[in-house]
Write a protein that binds this DNA or RNA. Structure first.
Lengths: 394, 394
DNA sequence: GATATTTTTTTGCACTATTCAAATAAAACG
DNA sequence: CGTTTTATTTGAATAGTGCAAAAAAATATC
């Protein structure tokens, strides 16, 4: 239980100040005091500590407003560095960033499946070593490692409970990396990590709550409230891919009927296009992909436009369900499927607007991510940034 | 922004101690210190204050464990009294309770629709005055009023934005009652209030997160995490009644297809039974109600058993969707529909177990409320109890 | 029954970190 | 160049927890 101690008092204020600097940089002590309602001496003493720690640096402002020139404060982004790892089903991506999330180095490995637990962890360790070397950073300057792992993750222990594509269970990622590198290690599900990446780096300001949905080979979502991830009791909050929206619908790989995944993934789009073609007795002479469905729709072929509109409608239904349960301020969509944004987004928005119950729900902002492929691996880094900047514990 | 001040430090500890007494009553200062890891002097000084405020009282224990006899502490449940109001579509129920949630008086009014805003508020004021009188409590001893209002509620302002059955909009409930009675007033949606009532009075211990679903004429849910309600951005979190589970299904009153409400409300059960009867060309000579469907099913009539099993399956699907998004530790079901628990619960549990993805999700506890009709009005009272016992602000 | 032991609670002082008021610093303005 | 304004620091006051020891009140032991 978090008691009311002097440490709590101080760490709350430290957190407030650090975040104020981070979000309003450059900012003076006096401004911080005014805007946070902390007293000037409190701000001064905490800033002094932050300067000593090297987390923050000073710089005089050129002009003033008719008084002593304020000393502007900045986050010392290169005080420490962070490693983010995105361990997908087929590839392992790693980056090194500074505290501002600027990527200083990146590396990518292809995983050969099937793989043993030991060699999976070896690849991970090697990719971390390698990317740190490439970024020209000393291992001692690394403050922590964040891992976005596909499949089911137990956050508290940092274990991958079940990684379907690798056919591995109970991989002790956190334990292995902490032993190897002696730094903080955070492990999170990849969809949730992506959501955190979006919340921190997507340019959304200080949202109360936001849901990020990844529409790729599967569908996953992450719920971020007050800059922090919502996990749920067993770390599966946001698993919307297998949300039933069509109780009598197509059988999903999970065995249930009409999961959102039977509508809104790349393979699902291909399947639906093929089915439509078959219905019309048409043949397709080339191998159909989600990309080609998009291309054909752009070329004006109504069959493919219809497929994408059906997909958009289903996504809209799924999002409306999410809105009615979680009621976020904003929903951000990402993943390969959203490359067809041109066709999908209008109908998604229209569906949400038609189907949502209240004005507040209808007006939920729905956007497409601008972060691209880095969202997940940046999310892995953000797992650490949350600890550093938003911690009320340390 | 909540700063780190001495008040914060103290109120955190006060909250910890007050809650410890509440949940572990009777308990001595020494035990509190041991179990909360607060120091004995801190506990003593805060308890002294609580005694002075009258929130807590002392009593010596008869026996000891080989040392000074501990002074046991109790919450002084009759120090203050609370009013809870359940403003449903047709009736207005009000209760007075002590701080332990013991009901000291109750009253019920039938609302004549249509009704004007002024007379609606008058009935509410009158019911409060009347129930306080009935409970033999002085108005000055009332610490606050909690209102569970059906329809869409704006929590921050305490306004009822939209009350469908009364055909009223923008009723300033909080404002009106605070002006009249000069006490704290909290207004909340009735389904969410019910969820809070269940969390506080349902005997569930200290759950991290819990979802309570009310299956009556409509379907509504409330999400409670760490003893507090989750509202979402626009106060509609938990509106699962219009969750689409059958994209091509029956048209709902909201205009969409296949909402959970088209399966799992009393009227929906009746409709489905009638449809089944019509399919078989059968006639029902009496007016069918949800109760009679249950009775007929109990009597062994397979048609009605089928209807209830379909209903249970749909509820199971809906709950699985909720589990995959919010991932609560426990789901509690209430409302008139659950009178058919005998038929519904087994299939609901089976469906969740079959359809949920992970072990953790499958094992989500699903129970039926034991609180009965008082859940909502007790939830209205709990709105105030949260403030009193869990407040970190005052 | 006197003494030792144990347990509970309080007391007094130390410590931490904020708060308030005032001092200092440094620039702009006239 | 003095006055005003704004920024930051200093030092005493204050609030509240933490620690150690004392006091209180019971039981256990001889």
């Amino acid at each position: 239980m978090q008691r009311g101690t002097f440490q709590l008092m101080k760490s709350v204020n430290k957190s407030i100040i650090l975040n104020k600097i981070r979000t309003c940089e450059p900012i003076s002590r006096a401004q911080i005091a005014k805007e946070t309602e902390l007293t000037p001496p409190t701000v001064s003493s905490i800033v002094k500590e932050l300067l000593e720690q090297g987390m923050v640096y000073e710089q005089k402002k050129a002009t003033s407003m008719g008084g002593r020139r304020p000393t502007m404060l900045y986050i010392n982004k290169t005080a420490y560095y962070l490693v983010g790892v995105d361990a997908g089903p087929e590839t392992m991506n790693a980056i090194v960033t500074d505290l501002g999330g600027t990527i200083l180095g990146r590396i990518s490995y292809v995983l050969n499946t099937p793989i043993t637990e030991a060699s999976f962890l070896d690849v991970m360790k090697q990719s971390i070593n390698e990317v740190v070397r490439l970024a020209n950073v000393k291992m001692e300057e690394i403050m922590g490692i964040g891992v976005a792992m596909h499949g089911v993750v137990e956050v508290a222990t940092g274990k991958s409970l079940y990684a379907p594509n690798l056919k591995l269970t109970d991989i002790p990622i956190k334990e292995a990396l902490e032993q190897e590198f002696c730094v903080t290690v955070k492990v999170e599900n990849d969809a949730r990590a992506m959501a955190l990446g979006e919340a921190w780096f997507g340019g959304h300001g200080d949202l109360g709550s936001m849901v990020t949905v990844n529409l790729g080979r599967g569908v996953g979502a992450g719920i971020v409230t007050d800059g922090k991830l919502f996990h749920g009791a067993k770390d599966i909050a946001g698993e919307i891919g297998h949300m039933t929206i069509d109780i009598n619908g197509e059988i999903c790989e999970c065995g249930n009927h009409g999961c959102l995944q039977t509508f809104a993934t790349g393979p699902a789009i291909v399947r639906r296009a093929q089915r439509k073609l078959a219905e019309r007795g048409a043949e397709h002479s080339f191998k159909l992909t989600a990309e080609s469905v998009f291309e054909l729709a752009k070329a004006g072929n109504t069959l493919y436009v219809d497929v994408l509109e059906e997909t958009g409608f289903a996504i809209g239904i799924g999002l409306t369900n999410v809105i009615h349960i979680v009621n976020p301020e904003k929903i951000v969509l990402g993943g390969g499927v959203m490359k067809s944004e041109e066709f999908l987004l209008p109908i998604i928005k229209k569906t949400v607007n038609n189907n949502a119950l209240t004005e507040g729900a209808k007006n939920t902002e729905v956007k497409v991510t601008k972060l691209g492929k880095d969202a997940t691996v940046l999310g892995a880094v953000a797992l650490l940034l949350v600890e550093i900047f938003d911690s009320v514990l340390g």
